[in-house]
Every structure is written in C-alpha cells, then in structure tokens.
Simulated scan of single mutants.
Amino acid sequence: MHKILLTASLLFMSAAAAGPALAHSGSPWVDQREAMQQHRIQQGMHSGALTPREGRALYREQARIRHLEHNFLADGRLTRRERLALDRHLDRSNRHIYWQKHDLQRR
C-alpha cells in the first residue's frame, strides 16, 4: 500500500513540476483542472474509495491528457479546436474519477 501511495505521490509531484512550465504556454486552466483531478485521485486512493488498480488507470489517463496537451502546444499556442478537445478529455476524465470513486469497490 505504501508503495502505491509513494508512486502516486511521485506521479503527482512530477505533474506539478511540469505544471508551471506549461502554465506560461497558454493553458493555465488545463493545468488547474489537471491538478484538481490529480488531487481527487490521490484523495480517493488515500481514503480507500479507489482501488490501486483504479488509481493507476486514472493516473495513466491523466498522463495521456498531459501528453495530448504537450503535443497541442508544440507550435506554441492552443487553437480553439485544441482547447475544446482538451476540455472534452478533461470532462471525460472527471466522469471516470467520479464513477470509480462511487462504484462501491473498496481496497
């Protein structure tokens, strides 16, 4: 259990370290939403609402969103279409976090 929490903390800290660099790139609202979702996942793992497997899957989903954001920012800006795509992915991720935290599975 401690190994999973340590891994989750390291993932969260690496995302937080990348956040300030990306915040200056024109997507602070995405970084804020990502940070909040990371916090919700971490809280769910700590409380037992998320199993370790669910937590890992949700962290991987967050990593895919960060990767997508990085690719979109390769030209230095986000287009309207890219912002909408990121928003759609973050909305979907938000629902996944909610569903996994409320599915009555416990660790």
Rank of each mutant, 00 (worst) to 15 (best):
W29D: 12
W29F: 09
D31T: 06
D31Q: 10
Q32K: 15
Q32C: 07
R33L: 04
R33N: 06
E34N: 08
E34P: 00
A35Q: 09
M36D: 15
M36L: 14
Q38R: 09
H39G: 01
R40D: 10
I41C: 03
I41Q: 05
Q42G: 06
G44D: 01
G44R: 05
H46S: 11
G48S: 06
G48C: 08
A49W: 00
L50F: 03
T51C: 09
P52T: 01
P52G: 00
R53C: 01
G55L: 02
G55W: 01
G55S: 05
R56H: 02
R56A: 04
R56I: 11
L58M: 12
L58Y: 05
Y59D: 09
R60C: 07
R60K: 12
R60M: 11
E61A: 13
A63E: 15
A63D: 08
R64F: 06
R64D: 13
I65G: 01
I65R: 03
I65L: 05
H67N: 12
L68Q: 15
L68M: 14
H70T: 11
H70N: 09
H70K: 10
N71D: 15
F72L: 09
F72T: 02
F72V: 05
F72E: 11
F72D: 12
F72Q: 10
F72W: 00
D75W: 01
D75T: 07
D75S: 09
R77E: 07
R81I: 08
E82F: 03
E82N: 01
E82G: 07
R83Y: 10
L84K: 15
L84A: 14
L84C: 09
A85I: 12
A85H: 15
L86S: 01
D87Q: 10
D87F: 02
D87G: 08
D87M: 08
R88K: 14
R88I: 02
R88T: 10
H89Q: 15
H89V: 10
L90I: 04
D91K: 11
S93K: 02
S93N: 14
N94Q: 11
R95T: 07
R95I: 11
R95C: 03
H96M: 13
I97P: 05
I97C: 03
I97Y: 00
I97K: 01
Y98R: 15
Y98V: 13
Q100C: 09
Q100F: 10
K101M: 14
K101E: 15
H102F: 02
